[in-house]
Nucleic acid binder design. Structure first.
Lengths: 259, 259
DNA sequence: CCAGCAAAGCCACAAAATGTCACAGACCTG
DNA sequence: CAGGTCTGTGACATTTTGTGGCTTTGCTGG
């Protein structure tokens, strides 16, 4: 591994974890601690990180608390789901990505694809996609919800309904064998429903924690969702319901450690 | 294998992996490291890759370069202008903020105000405003320009024309005594013109560097702009032109050091 | 509060790795 | 064969890395 890779790997580790110790990084990259310190000094000089005694942290958090917190929950599950879902996308497609945190990681995984047309209502997804590669990025605007960092209002619906995506990537707040796909926020649910008859294939990305949550707003039934990508097998009643409705269930590979 | 094949193979390897070491490539293609270095020098000369010590990477792996770079240029001037411009905004107002880097700093300064309705076409401004205070934030969406990190197309125009802001904050690419307010990008200019008859007060924020630039697209004449906030006195002809058109010139306080 | 201690940081030096340059031979082409 | 390009080699320059000595930091027990 060359120095440049190590330095971006340090930044990547910080992006995931928020902070790291020097000794841990030295061990991980199999170099001396002094080398890590030298890397960190460089990163600090250009303002990318902040040194603290014994380690290194990110400067002022780039995202606001609630969203950032959700982004870190079940991180490895979400990233492995995202990798799998990104595999369903082919170069040149038009892809809608919603404002869920799992969807954000899908957007990250799409960085290496070519010539996509990406549509989103999420400020974070749009900001992340801009500046990577040559994708065209369309942002459905409107009044922004600070908690979700996205627009769900009539303006956003109108703009997004102008597209006929090959694939729509949806997060869901909860999934239930009896009621199907649920959310907590009525506006968010209404926004998603507005896309159900537009996308040619609708993929829901959801970690296993969503199977035991109780949602409050109905978004879709199993018959309306083509694929569900998750990290662990759902409870049997949910599997039966999915089969009955025609929803394919994909289990993502667990993350490879130390690859 | 001839040189041309090897060079495209290097690019292919980079597309897959993002970066490679020189020694690895030499081994893979069974040529000397010096040969690989020569290939890489060629690729670097035409901008396809970036050389790093020990290897080679794709350009712009974590690129936000153009926007970030502009954000740092003339930083203190921009922030002092932004402080002054933010002083023109009162609690409860509806404020439009455009996608210029000086405007971004105005948005930052508005964090402490109460109950504003903020409208912007800039992803960065929206992301920054969200999560501070209780402002309502409206983002005019559409196809995003990666360089400006904002939308300027018909969708964005339509949405933003739905508002009648008390104040619109505009950056400008150049200001000229003869031609008035200019920009470099036709789309950006058209977007701003669409707001000229909507905002009750139009404030242009521009550091002194804009007085010596040559713009390429006309945005507005002095008669259409109510206020110009800048950091140093403009050249006399420009002052005369501003007075003739009714544009008030505000000089911002120099930045306080160590505050 | 402070002395003492261990961990962490910094610096300087030398070794190792990598980069650059110039030169000469190999190879192709007309 | 002349002229050009491409390649490998070795000398030399530059950058990076590990190590040891020393200083600083943060913690803890008195």
């Amino acid at each position: 591994m060359i120095q440049a890779d190590r330095i971006s790997a340090i930044l990547a580790a910080l992006d995931e974890r928020g902070s790291c110790s020097i000794s841990e990084l030295a061990l991980r990259f199999d170099v001396s601690e002094e080398t890590i310190r030298r890397d960190v000094r460089q990163l600090e000089a250009n303002g990318s990180v902040i040194k603290v005694h014994g380690g290194v942290t990110l400067p002022a958090p780039r995202l606001e608390a609630p969203y950032r917190k959700r982004l870190r929950e079940q991180l490895e599950a979400k990233r492995s789901i995202a990798r799998h879902a990104a595999g369903l996308v082919q170069d040149g497609m038009t892809v809608f990505i919603d404002s869920g945190t799992t969807s954000f990681w899908v957007a990250q995984e799409l960085g290496h694809r070519k010539g996509l047309t990406l549509v989103t209502n999420s400020v974070e997804v749009a900001a992340d996609l801009l500046g990577r590669s040559d994708h065209r990025v369309f942002l459905a605007g409107g009044m922004l919800n600070a908690d979700y960092r996205a627009a769900f209002d009539a303006d956003a619906v109108r703009m997004v309904r102008g597209f006929l995506p090959d694939i729509a990537i949806f997060s869901m707040g909860a999934i239930d064998a009896h009621h199907g796909f649920l959310d907590f926020d009525p506006d968010e649910a209404a926004f998603k429903r507005a896309l159900l008859d537009r996308a040619r294939r609708i993929v829901v990305v959801a970690d296993h924690a969503k199977f035991s949550r109780v949602g409050t707003v109905h978004v879709a039934d199993f018959g309306q969702i083509h694929d569900l990508v998750t990290d662990l097998p759902p409870p049997p009643p949910l599997i039966d319901a999915a089969r009955g409705g025609g929803t394919a269930i994909h289990l993502s590979e667990p993350a490879l450690q130390g690859g």
